[in-house]
């Protein structure tokens, strides 16, 4: 049993509500991503789960046991820090087995586990090095190794890939996800990168100003954003929101077509060619709209084009509250097809 449950958890510093009445559940063996812009409270939520901060209200349970008042060690979790938090004066091997030595595990078993973990994270040749002699990706692996060697059922990750370059980030993303599934760990993963969240998560909790904006699977967040904020946060480029009276009409760039007649008149501002597809940035009556098109689009700034989309791809939001409006005509069809 290693499911994590937060029940009305709050944490504030002075008048700043860092985490405000947050309830969520990470199922056993699942990867839950806490997503949001910086300062939204996602890291604080993770630190509350880790026991590095004490909540001002609410309860936290891990595997059914109330851990709210326990120390990090008593919660039997492992954690990967954004800075990796490797001990700079200890070798890679010493870093990885640090926790085992703390718990006075016999040397023989320590060595066996170290060998196994070094194989998993691919550090076999580097065990005698100091962290300063490693590349960013290798340091990341040491931090991973230290997190999995204790075989804790719960692993917490605080923006573990934010210090890596794009290519390495992509590799490690796949690797961490594979590792999590192979070891069957319950993982809570904090990131501000929606691509990471979409590709890795079983469930995404999108946070904003200390509160949960939406809690759902990646598909739900993409297909049925509950608020305009979610709509703007998910997708590259994110959903276009066009003001129409009291409502915001949301359409994803990939659902917009360039047509020769009918549709909405638009003027091209710039075109980004990504290779497999192109992003055309245009204006519809002075509101920016991006359009994703397959292949190489021959349009130049200043061109007048016409845009169209199916009503079934429209998402409607209330302009004032940002909440999703369920009255859209296409709603029924969308639910039927999705």
């Amino acid at each position: 049993m290693s499911a994590i449950k937060l029940d009305h958890v709050s944490k504030h510093w002075g008048t700043m509500r860092a985490v405000d009445d947050v309830s969520l559940t990470a199922d056993e063996g699942a990867l839950l991503v806490l997503l949001g812009p910086s300062g939204c409270g996602k890291s604080t939520t993770l630190r509350l789960i880790a026991g590095l901060e004490q909540p001002d209200g609410g309860t936290i349970t891990i595997g059914g046991a109330d851990v709210t008042g326990l120390t990090p060690a008593q919660r039997k979790i492992s954690m990967v820090f954004q800075s990796y938090a490797l001990f700079p004066h200890l070798s890679v091997a010493e870093n990885i087995v640090f926790g085992l030595r703390v718990r006075r595990m016999p040397r023989a078993e320590r060595e066996t586990r170290l060998k196994r973990v070094a194989d998993i994270v691919g550090l076999g040749q580097l065990l005698d090095r100091k962290p300063s002699q490693l590349s960013g990706g290798q340091r990341q692996r040491v931090a991973l190794g230290r997190a999995i060697i204790a075989e804790a059922r719960v692993c917490l990750m605080d923006e573990p890939l934010s210090n890596l370059d794009a290519k390495l980030r992509h590799e490690m993303r796949t690797e961490i996800r594979a590792l999590q599934q192979r070891l069957g760990m319950t993982m809570v993963y904090v990131t501000h990168d929606q691509t990471e969240a979409m590709t890795m998560a079983d469930r995404i909790v999108l946070m904003r100003d200390g509160r949960i904006e939406q809690n759902g699977t990646p598909e739900e967040l993409y297909n049925r954003p509950a608020t305009a904020f979610t709509a703007r946060f998910i997708g590259t480029p994110p959903m276009n929101l066009i003001a129409q009276g009291e409502r915001l009409v949301g359409v994803r760039p990939e659902h917009i077509r360039i047509v020769s007649q009918d549709g909405h008149a638009a003027r091209v501002r710039t075109v980004e060619h990504l290779g497999a597809d192109s992003i055309v940035l245009c204006d519809i009556s002075d509101q920016p709209v991006s359009v994703r098109q397959d292949g190489f689009i021959k349009a130049s700034p200043g061109d007048d084009i016409r845009l169209a989309w199916d009503a079934s791809h429209e998402h409607l939001f209330d302009k004032e509250s940002g909440r999703r409006l369920e009255t859209a005509a296409g709603e029924a069809r969308l639910v039927a097809s999705g």
């Binding site: 990090p72 060690a73 938090a85 640090f98 718990r103």
Partner: peptide, 17 residues
């Protein structure tokens, strides 16, 4: 870095250790 102390705490190290 305070991270180091926290990392040690997560691993169960006492303050003296």
């Amino acid at each position: 870095s305070p991270d180091l102390e926290e990392a040690a705490a997560v691993e169960g190290a006492s303050r003296w250790y």
